[in-house]
């Protein structure tokens, strides 16, 4: 009994210390960002790695999610003769929730895990240590460009996911099921608000998610035990922790932003 209590206490302290380290890590990351003004080329390379290379999965997933929303929405609305609201349903669910959340989850799986593995392996193979011995600080040189690139890429990917999803919904609803195209867009425009929906949902949520996803990914990589087992463990933890953090934060943000409805 006493032992398990002590175990629990140790676990809690351990977690707390980890959180503290993570925050210090974030601070160091943010401080290193200014370096990128001098070396924008580093950013381009990382934007390619986390942004451009994530595009295929984002495009395909966005299209399919939008098409499913169109089908499901139609099946439910057709009973009330309200299929003209289909555009609203598709757009609002994508803009407020599915776009930011699914993009962040896909990003964690596609790019976050890769970031963790890359940084972890760089540590395991002493690349970071040798960089330090060459008097080059890995924070501005290696970590900051990845962080900033990720933080830029996630909102852009979210915008693309959402837009493609709405097009997918349009394809199913208008092209396939024969909903009136005019009312599809008109109803959508009447109900979707630029600041309250697109601003809060796509822009703010995705920015927060992007920050968290990249923070976790880089921290896990940097903290990983420098062995193949440690790196694989860290990669798993990146995906799990990011998913939990994104879903939890999504609830919080939704309650804050859309609470009045």
């Amino acid at each position: 009994m006493m032992a398990s209590l002590a175990e629990l206490g140790r676990f809690a302290l351990d977690r707390l210390a980890r959180l503290g380290r993570a925050n210090l890590f974030l601070l160091q990351l943010l401080r290193a960002l200014s370096f990128l003004f001098r070396r924008p080329g580093l950013l381009v390379k990382q934007l390619h790695a986390v942004g451009v290379l994530s595009l295929p999965i984002i495009l395909v997933s966005g299209l399919f999610v939008g098409m499913v929303l169109g089908l499901q929405g139609y099946a439910n609305l057709v009973d009330f003769g309200a299929t003209s609201s289909l555009g609203t349903v598709v757009a609002l669910s994508l803009i407020r929730e599915l776009g930011p959340v699914l993009t962040a989850l896909l990003y964690a799986g596609r790019a976050g895990s890769a970031l963790t593995a890359e940084i972890g392996l760089m540590r395991a193979t002493e690349q970071l240590a040798s960089m330090q011995m060459m008097a080059v600080d890995p924070f501005p040189r290696v970590l900051a460009p990845r962080f900033l690139a990720g933080c830029i890429a996630v909102p852009l990917l979210t915008g693309i996911f959402t837009a493609v999803g709405i097009l997918g919904g349009y394809l199913v609803a208008v092209v396939q099921l024969g909903v009136d195209g005019g009312s599809f867009w008109a109803q959508m425009q009447a109900k979707v608000q630029l600041l309250a929906d697109v601003g809060n949902g796509v822009l703010i949520k995705s920015t927060v998610f992007g920050l968290v996803a990249n923070w976790i990914a880089l921290f896990e990589g940097y903290q990983a035990q420098p062995t193949s087992e440690g790196v694989s463990l860290a990669t798993t933890r990146t995906v799990v922790d990011t998913s939990l953090a994104v879903l939890g934060l999504d609830f919080l943000l939704t309650a804050l932003m859309f609470g009045e409805w």
Binding site: G159, T162, A163, I166, V198, L203
Partner: peptide, 14 residues
């Protein structure tokens, strides 16, 4: 990405 946001602003929302 910017085009997507443009579309969300012009075509999707008012």
């Amino acid at each position: 990405g910017l085009a997507a946001f443009f579309m969300l602003a012009i075509k999707v929302s008012d």
